[in-house]
Write a protein that binds this DNA or RNA. Sequence first.
DNA 1: AAACACCGCAACCGCGTAGGA
DNA 2: CTCCTACGCGGTTGCGGTGTT
Length: 322
Amino acid sequence: MGRAPCCDKANMKKGPWSTEEDSKLREYIEKYGTGGNWIALPQKAGLKRCGKSCRLRWLNYLRPNIKHGEFTDEEDRIICSLFATIGSRWSIIAAQLPGRTDNDIKNYWNTKLKKKLMAMSMTSQPHRKPPPFPSSHHTPSVSFPSLSSLYKDCTTYQDPTRSFTAFEPVSSVQADLLNNGNTTLPTNSSLIHTPEALVNYMQYYPVKENFLMFGSESSCTSSDGSSGHISFGREMKQENMSHFQGFCATNGYEDNHNFMLNPGTNNGGKNVNQWAEKPREYNLENDLEDFKRLISSSSNNCCNNNFIDENKTQEKVMYFYY
DNA sequence: AAACACCGCAACCGCGTAGGA
DNA sequence: CTCCTACGCGGTTGCGGTGTT
């Protein structure tokens, strides 16, 4: 037995919104507000739309002060940095960018920014042989060089209840979680103040499909990855923080070949907090110089001037190999 | 000029969760 | 405590626009 639909879809209009619908919705909300009830709103406003659809239209398009158009370099930097820190928590990222919606940022990331980062990675490491690029619903993997370009200042971001710093594990709670996994945390690993520290930090990231992993495992088909939302604005729950276990899941890659592959709390009934053998060997030491070079070469530019023409390098930018 | 391919964005879908009954 | 409803989120889809052949 399936989930009950949120509304009677048979009588609901779908697809693009007309200007008439837009103005109806805007006028109603400006006059009466949402009333805290999106389900009832469309009927009151005289719209043949699902409440969810109205909400989305309002939040993503009609709401005042919505910013459309080009993202600035600063916005790029914030997005990348936060993505590296917390993964695909678009609503949280959007909260740091006034006027931007989570949908906007998500689209921007998927269609442009990710490619920019990949392109930059390729220009930085042209000798690398490309592996297959993960499909779009796979974990959003951020390459190290791209992060290095964003690294420069460990920006601190705010949310309603706390602040956190890019590359900083978002909560100390994870230390407890990790210790439960028979691992010893590197002490004082929560902040990275130098490029070298960042490189060292990389040793603690799990690896999947030859990609370094940052933030959450958000492979996220809706059935396996969307659990454990971070409840910013409310007290953080411990299980929610398990997404961040990937930040420092071992006491050193040389000592521990296990990697946290599924840091989520629920993986569709499959293994939870599963430890698995490191999928492949990699020579981090050989890459250190590359990483450092990338850091120094790109630390002053975020996702901008160093980017190559994505249209002309599509073959390249679809791959990144570390 | 037409056909095809690609891209970007708006919108939809389904799930997890909060909160009230 | 359980159930139910609505909300919010993140992943995915589909369409229209643009570029390429």
